[in-house]
Design a binder for these strands. Sequence first.
RNA 1: GGUCUGGUAGCUCAGCUGGAUAGAGCAUCAGCCUUCUAAGCUGAGGGCCAUUGGUUCGAAUCCAAUCCAGAUCACCA
Length: 591
Amino acid sequence: MWIVKHIQQTAIESLNQIFGQTFTEKDFQINQTKPEFDGDYTIVLFSLVKALKLSPDDIGNKLGDHLTQNNPTLFTDYNIIKGFLNLTVADSYWLDLLAKNYNDVCYGKAKLNGQKVMVEYSSPNTNKPLHLGHLRNNFLGWSVAEILKASGYDVIKTCIVNDRGIHICKSMIAWQLFGNGATPQSENKKGDHFVGEYYVKFNDELKKQIHELKDKGINEKEAEKEAPIMKATQQMLLDWEAGKPEVMQLWKTMNSWVYEGFDTTYKKIGSDFNKTYYESNTYLLGKKIVEEGLAKGVFFKEDDNSVWIDLTTDGLDKKIVQRKDGTSVYITQDIGLAQQKYEEYGIDQSIYVIGDEQNYHMKVLKLIAEKLQLPNAQNIYHLSYGMVELPTGKMKSREGTVVDADDIVQEMENVAKNKTEELGKVKDFTAEELETLYTTIGLGALKFFLLRVDPKKKMIFNPEESIDFHGFTGPFVQYTHARIKSILRKEEVTSTKFQVQSLLPLEKKLMIILEQYATVIDKAANEHNPSEIAIYVFEVAKIFNSFYAEHSITNAETPDKKQLRLQLASLTATVLKSGMQLLGIGVPERM
RNA sequence: GGUCUGGUAGCUCAGCUGGAUAGAGCAUCAGCCUUCUAAGCUGAGGGCCAUUGGUUCGAAUCCAAUCCAGAUCACCA
């Protein structure tokens, strides 16, 4: 059992024995004691005053006495300052914990809880390469999945590829018009970038045609509809839906180019999926559900045959779920897919990692699922994240202010390379080892930067500052790990039994935070928030570095102290490695 | 206009299920490598927690209003 819970329960017992009243965990708070006071953990007494009709100091004295007298192996001392009962936890408690866990690579991770969760993330369009926004999505989704695993869930990672629709036809048309049979191979370009260029070409041409039409006196809206390239695109979508062979062939070819490019990027950034859904397979889903919904009275039919749901009593609007021509709209597919996911995997919880611009859509999806009484509809969770913006404002593909995913990764690697060469600590590495190291550090910096912020908040990416490798960054944590490993390569923990009675302040501080790892995983899992892990891991590294600067490990005061510190260093390395792994970041042995 | 987010140091962010003098990192300034990796450590300066009211022993945190910024409200996805 973890310390806070332990204190809580002991305090509840003591309060019961002293005052004959029963309290619960929610009746009083336990915080870590602020550094300026003596003690390790603090019970806030104010909330008990009313029920006990005593002054905070009175309660504190009685509780403090009782706790220390009845739990000598847990508490050694207490003091009361202005209504706060500061408890000192016995050093033997920390030492026992350390001895039991210093060698456990699974330290902090929970056992399977029998719950199955699906995490859908990434969900790219196959008409352009991934950009920085996609990276936030990918890193978030992957990390949340890992955190949930560490917290005891059985996790299935999925991806829905938006591989069809008008936007895909746009790049197809442009390729037909301007491609002259070019291929990624012939142009020596990555497939997704190659296709993305035609998407841009489409928009350029469209703009040109609109301009020409406007000169002829046609208004903007009309011009966009009437532009020949747009008409051709719409025709192509119809042909696609009709399964016209040459269109299907082109579609398959161009998508395969994109997939090849995506594969490279996914492999590089470490995204993986247990199951990939394709919109071209799922876009017709949901029609059966529309029928069922009509029968249940959840949906209603308009005179023109379109099908709707009325969500006005839930504070939302009416929403269409099927067009008058009987075709599915976006939300219909999603309901269909939601059900398919459940049928295929019997999931207890379904998490969607999708940007906050779709908050409304996801709210509607969940509501509809609930009204249709789909299984576990209430456990649909939209992990909504904010947009990534540049200091100059939003990223806009049209204005060329998009930060390309492959570019930024490459840039981070270059910085890692320059920095590493400058420091010259790994001159004996092979070329291959160096490449791996640059990727680990560069990608680590990028992932950490994107994950250290609360997902729901929009974030500003400043290319200049973001490639900093000092302070609250991935490389800082990686460096701390490498430092520890450097010691552990030379020195081993040789005895688990040693005579150390007391801990120095920094040793204890380190032990206290290491003890919190499992609690932090749990919190991060419940809140679907990797930034909890990033902040924690940084804090651990910071405390270790202070400890490292203050106390020598290899030249400790006594052999016993050396053993203790080796154990501490070992557990720290484990927690850093494990925590970083939950963020998808590797930690090097040397750097 | 309706709904939903967010506003904390010069910058980027923690803290938000109410608790002690509001914390980090970057940047600025001053120190620390003949000792385990200086991608490090120690210290200094820097704040009307958007504004105004309310709730209470206590509010950055909860409530209300206002101001500012963003998202969304398609027979697009």
